[in-house]
Simulated scan of single mutants.
Amino acid sequence: MRAVIMDGPGHPIVTDVPDPRICEPTDAVIKILLACICGSDLWPYRGLEDAQQLRMGHEYVGIVTQIGKEVTTVSVGDYVVGSFAISDGTCEICQAGYPSRCRNGSFVHGSIGTQAEYARIPYADGTLVRLAEKPDEDVLPSLLAASDVLGTGWFAADAAGAGPGKTIAVVGDGAVGLMGVLAARELGAERIIISSRRPQRQALARSFGATDIIVERGEQAVAAVRELTGGYGAHGTIEAVGTQESMMQAIGSTRPGGSVGYVGVSHGVNLPGGDLFFALIKLQGGPAPVRRYLPDLIDRIMRRQINPGAVFDMELPLDQAAEGYRAMDERTAVKVLLRP
């Protein structure tokens, strides 16, 4: 089959790899209907993470083609959506609601990879969610978004305390930040302030529910959020970038007693103890427990209550994945959908 391999920084290639097969009785093999490129895929692309022979991709919607003898929740022919994190669904961490840190889990990218024609999904019962019916073609991109960016944005909004009467600030106008806007709106936030400088992304943010756009970053953004909130700061802030500046912007934008939901993959972030101590805020974040949210998100999508698939602004065949990486790296695309 064909799959995307990161053959060193800046060099994603599409090449033939062995077809996946059942290795454990808890495995399933799926035919990938849609995949995509994630902002976190740009870290190895830019040489900031190991980029040697990585199997790329961790977002997917597909059809089950094989199952192991212990798989009980999905069958051959089922349409499925799964998390970017493999989880058994049974360990104490999974049962507590954090399957992305399953004691027996792993991540889909690296050794599995879903920027491909097929993929083997370990712990299928704990990772995949079966759709009750065949989805219409037009909802497939939204289901794909649920696999990571929507679920990640949802976790960030949840951790930030989004709810009725609340003001939520969003740091980062990439796909996850934009999905955080959508999630905050769905959770009932009264006001959503996003920091964004690009008109296309500003328009998307508005369509997803942003009420205020600021163009400032860093300390200037903190001042702008506080000015918009009568000097108090937001009740909660979504941090969706992963840099020192973005984290400090998120902390500074949040009022005492508020919360920061941080989901940007951290690179070089060091929190000053004094600043954190006197901020008097709650911090929760990390790899989003997407599997926890998937049944609810799929239901909202299938009822057409939300349309997160609008975040995909470029579509390419799998063989042109390198072009998609360039577009996202150069920020000429928000998120690229790949069709195997």
Results as ranks from 00 to 15, higher is better:
W43Q: 11
A240F: 01
A51W: 00
S83F: 13
D299E: 09
R103W: 03
V311H: 06
A224V: 04
R304V: 07
I67N: 04
P135K: 03
I168M: 00
S259Q: 15
R21V: 14
S40N: 10
G126Q: 08
K31G: 02
F277S: 14
F84N: 05
E24T: 04
E59N: 05
A169D: 08
G151K: 06
A132N: 12
E227W: 06
V290L: 04
A184W: 03
R304T: 05
A234W: 08
D275M: 14
L297V: 00
L228P: 08
I121L: 09
E330A: 13
V181I: 14
I281H: 01
S195E: 03
G8V: 10
R339S: 11
G126H: 10
G57A: 12
Q202E: 11
A160M: 13
R300V: 04
D27C: 05
D19C: 02
A85L: 03
D296V: 11
S195D: 04
A189R: 01
L131V: 07
D50Y: 12
L283E: 00
I281G: 00
I67R: 11
Y60S: 03
R130I: 05
E92N: 11
G105S: 05
G110W: 06
Q284G: 06
E219R: 15
A234F: 11
L182P: 00
E92I: 12
R201M: 01
A224K: 03
Y118C: 07
V74L: 00
M6I: 13
L337F: 12
G110D: 12
V129Y: 09
E137M: 11
F277D: 08
I13L: 14
G180H: 02
A250S: 15
A234T: 08
V269N: 01
L294R: 02
S195K: 03
I86D: 03
D125S: 05
L338T: 05
D125I: 08
V64T: 03
P340F: 10
E315R: 08
E219H: 15
T254Y: 08
A28G: 05
D158K: 14
G252Q: 05
C38I: 11
N307K: 13
G252R: 06
A145E: 13
D138R: 05
E186L: 10
G110Y: 08
G258Q: 00
E323Y: 08
R46I: 01
D78F: 02
R217W: 05
G57M: 09
C23D: 15
Y262G: 09
S40C: 12
H267I: 13
T65Y: 00
T73R: 07
V76T: 14
K69V: 08
E190W: 09
M56H: 00
I194P: 00
A159H: 01
A28V: 04
I194N: 01
R292S: 08
G268F: 07
G153H: 04
R46H: 14
R185S: 08
Q53D: 13
